[in-house]
Design a protein around this nucleic acid. Sequence first.
DNA 1: CTCACGGACGGGAGCGCTCCCAATCCTTGG
DNA 2: CCAAGGATTGGGAGCGCTCCCGTCCGTGAG
Lengths: 340, 340
Amino acid sequence: MGRRRPGTPTLEEVAAHARVGRGTVSRVINNAAGVKDSTRRAVQQAIEELGYVPNLAARSLAGRRADAVALVMTEPDWRQFAEPFFSEIVSSLGNALTDTGMQLLLTLVRSDTERQRFLEYARGGRVDGVLLMSVHAGDPLPDMLADARLPTVLLGRRSGEEYVSYVDADNIGGARSAVSHLAQRGRRVIATITGPLDLYAAQCRLRGYEEALKLAGLKGEPTLVAESDFTTDSGRRAMAELLERHPDIDGVLAASDTTAAGALEALRAAGRRVPEDVAVIGFDDFPLAQQTEPRLTTVRQPIEEIGRAMIRLLLEEMEEGAVAWRHVILRTELVVRDST
Amino acid sequence: MGRRRPGTPTLEEVAAHARVGRGTVSRVINNAAGVKDSTRRAVQQAIEELGYVPNLAARSLAGRRADAVALVMTEPDWRQFAEPFFSEIVSSLGNALTDTGMQLLLTLVRSDTERQRFLEYARGGRVDGVLLMSVHAGDPLPDMLADARLPTVLLGRRSGEEYVSYVDADNIGGARSAVSHLAQRGRRVIATITGPLDLYAAQCRLRGYEEALKLAGLKGEPTLVAESDFTTDSGRRAMAELLERHPDIDGVLAASDTTAAGALEALRAAGRRVPEDVAVIGFDDFPLAQQTEPRLTTVRQPIEEIGRAMIRLLLEEMEEGAVAWRHVILRTELVVRDST
DNA sequence: CTCACGGACGGGAGCGCTCCCAATCCTTGG
DNA sequence: CCAAGGATTGGGAGCGCTCCCGTCCGTGAG
């Protein structure tokens, strides 16, 4: 396959055109110090005139870096692709990356073939580091990346025993404070709609729910727990199911705002008033949470900070060569609105 | 910044270890012909033992290709990120790319800075070609890419006068056949919920709607047209608005299945039966269309084929160096279900 | 006027791979 | 048994850039 692009001018040609040496042009391009102002201008003009664009492959080869990081989504995430969480995270990563000059590359890993290809890509040095979206329990990719000594940061963790670097929110604490809040408002039959339980984050939120029930001296029953997959639809279904099992429910913690939105619909359909009959709390604090009727009380995840923290950890690992793992757990915050 | 990864073995070292020449190892890696079987095995073993991974920067520099293509989403698309269309397209592109050995890289361009950075990335030779998601009217990126002589293929076009290569569905024909179908079933007051009209595709669907009305001898009124942004919510709102303006509406063409789903909700809320009182047609034929109540009659876009066609065009341009523009318009198909 | 010193600048030495031609090795046919 | 011809193989010549060291020039002190 002949994929060559037509002859772009090279550094050398720019140098000749500006009547300076190769090194000087390189210095100008990377705006390093130690170039007289007049020279710099001359070089810049030559670059302009020739329409020079640095060849990144050559730079990468000589400089031993790629100036790019990958954000990988593995198959199970893919179904969450449509959820706001995803686009919010991508945005925050993009923001955090802007002044490093690195490109953010999203890649999809849906099969073994694709995983293999991505590994070759990453190990081949096309990215300096890898960010992984919410990894699921058995995902082998993080370890493969760690084995390849590629700087890697997970969003969330696969279990309590995670060694690869990660940034996570305090899901247990968030869920606990939400449920405590419900209990304080006098709710006595509190149900929860969890996320997919192969996600550690979903497990943690469930644990926080259980802990808070115990603390409040309320009884927890398995029938008060329904699983969803974070979609509005599954939230609606789960809520309907819960209502059928426990018509006396007066409080619900949903695993995400999207799920909570579905729960609200189901409650409305069942003729329950929110918050009078049933109080509802979401999780995440997406913009969505302020558009529901009533506006949603929810547990805020600091998404912007999560993105910043991930990039910071990644840069640190790149700096020192992935010799240590760092874990950051960010505090969550209960945002009280009209649904409780 | 020191982003160097620890010393991976090089081709040369593999060659030494297998007691062959550099060229032979290269041949084995790229599994080119002309290597004795015994030699090939020896080399493969050496690769295995040393854990060799080819350095892609070097390959890229020497081979003048990147073995990667970018899929760019510009800001206005970003809001559609959450729509199923997007993930379906990405999937189909991924499928179409599997046996070319190229990596698919999604990149986000949300600002001028990011556009500039992406251009440097692409012009710097880090990708062999660029795919652009549904471009909006004034988007300058396609032309910038064309100027840089980068193989580029758009999904959809910006106007009827598009020169850059693109793959599009026959939106006019699809809308026309949908509305004709409504007319044949005896509907007389047919409204439409369009997509964002700065998208040419949305304009085309509107045009098809108008043409079909004329053909059926029905009157078209501006008040029968409402604009949406492809979301379920906006579909619901648009439908409510239309019903208010024309309580006698008996047929609706929505700009997408998502919008149609919103319309269905609004109709239900208004106490209209579908299809008895009002017939509804969607556009796209997403899985969603079979989950609504009633199941949606819709205009099918051949997404898998769109993906395949985009990749095919891109490969052709890469092959011959972007000397010609190709346009492919794929036929759409009316899928009749229960909503008409 | 001479000498030391520091800021600018030039260009050699790779980075690790692909391309390609020349050299070498085997076969096969006479 | 020998030569011709195809199958294999080795390795030189880059690809375009960064790194870094040595040179050159101007300046101020002696």
